[in-house]
């Protein structure tokens, strides 16, 4: 005969109800937090993947900030280059005026003074700062990019600006250096924009009759300088495009990471809720049947 022990009956009953309750609580926790994993050991592989994804997201946020900074620097560079090219165009206009034989020498001297002023403006422009307060055209220099040493200006910066990481192992150089912009080759050897402006201003101011022809000759030099600036602007534009492209790419990969994160670690609310409902139904049923069964004692029939 099988002996249906009363103690065993109660032990089984409480164990079953306890298991159902803890299952319901786990589901409730998943719905409450939206996360499938409470601790790593719930699913070690998924948890390790989630940690890697969280790291990717965190480092990508830094990439975003660095990329924004590079973009701001390059925009500043672009604006400065536009101002510089306007300045060169103005000098070229003045040089064209001065080259005319109908212009008197004292007018030419006035033009020389204006060109000299424009040269000092140019010096201010090349010493403009980026958003962190460093020289925009000075590479990795900590102070000003150029110091004035008439007729020329002396470059104080480093030969190359540092590149900035913008994610996926890609980098961008957020600035141009002075020599890349202002030094160029002529038929007579290398020169720079400062020297060209300085020479022109000196000759015109002196009222030298050769001013007209020198002005004409300088037009070619100014064209060379302008070409250098516009080329640089194209390069800057290309870099800005590259940053935009990488920003899009980072945004896309950020979305992918977020999607994978919710796929790996997120609780499926619909599934969790229906499972919870199912568990609660079973729990109620087993509680009810437990009470009914525990009332089935022979003692309650003994009168």
């Amino acid at each position: 005969m099988i002996n249906l022990s009363t103690g065993a009956f109660y032990e089984r009953g409480t164990r079953q109800i306890g298991v159902l309750r803890s299952h319901a609580e786990t589901l409730q926790n998943q719905i409450g937090t939206g996360d499938r994993l409470e601790r790593s050991s719930d699913d070690p592989v998924a948890a390790a993947r989630l940690r890697t994804l969280a790291r990717t997201e965190r480092l990508s946020a830094v990439d975003n900030r660095n990329s924004d900074m590079a973009q701001a620097d390059l925009s500043l560079t672009d604006q400065s280059l536009s101002s510089i090219s306007e300045l060169i165009i103005r000098v070229r206009e003045l040089a064209v005026q001065a080259s005319s034989v109908t212009v008197k020498d004292d007018q030419r001297a006035a033009i020389g003074v204006e060109i000299e002023g424009l040269r000092s403006n140019l010096l201010l422009l090349v010493n403009s700062r980026n958003i962190s307060g460093h020289a925009l055209f000075g590479g990795q220099a900590s102070g000003a990019a150029y110091t004035d040493a008439p007729p020329s200006a002396v470059y104080q910066g480093t030969p190359a600006p540092g590149a900035i990481e913008i994610g996926d192992g890609q980098t961008v150089v957020p600035a141009m250096t002075g020599p890349e912009l202002f030094e160029f080759q002529t038929a007579a050897g290398p020169t720079d924009l400062f020297t060209v402006l300085s020479d022109l201003a000196t000759v015109l101011k002196s009222g030298d009759p050769a001013g007209a022809s020198i002005s004409r000759d300088s037009l070619e030099l100014l064209d060379g300088g302008l070409e250098k600036i516009t080329t640089a602007q194209t390069v800057v534009g290309a870099r800005l495009n590259w940053i935009d492209l990488m920003s899009d790419r980072r945004a896309e990969s950020g979305e992918r990471v977020a999607a994978e994160r919710s796929e790996v670690g997120g609780a499926d609310i619909a599934v969790s809720i229906s499972r919870l409902q199912e568990t609660l139904t079973v729990l109620e049923a087993s509680q009810a049947s437990f009470v009914r069964l525990s009332n089935l004692s022979l003692f309650s029939l003994l009168r």
Partner: peptide
């Protein structure tokens, strides 16, 4: 472990119904 314990309880534990029958 719990099935071993339940086996032991079933075999050695007190069943109130059969005790009620014994009482009578």
């Amino acid at each position: 472990a719990s099935s071993a314990r339940v086996t032991l309880e079933q075999q050695s534990g007190v069943d109130l119904d059969s005790e009620a029958a014994n009482l009578i």
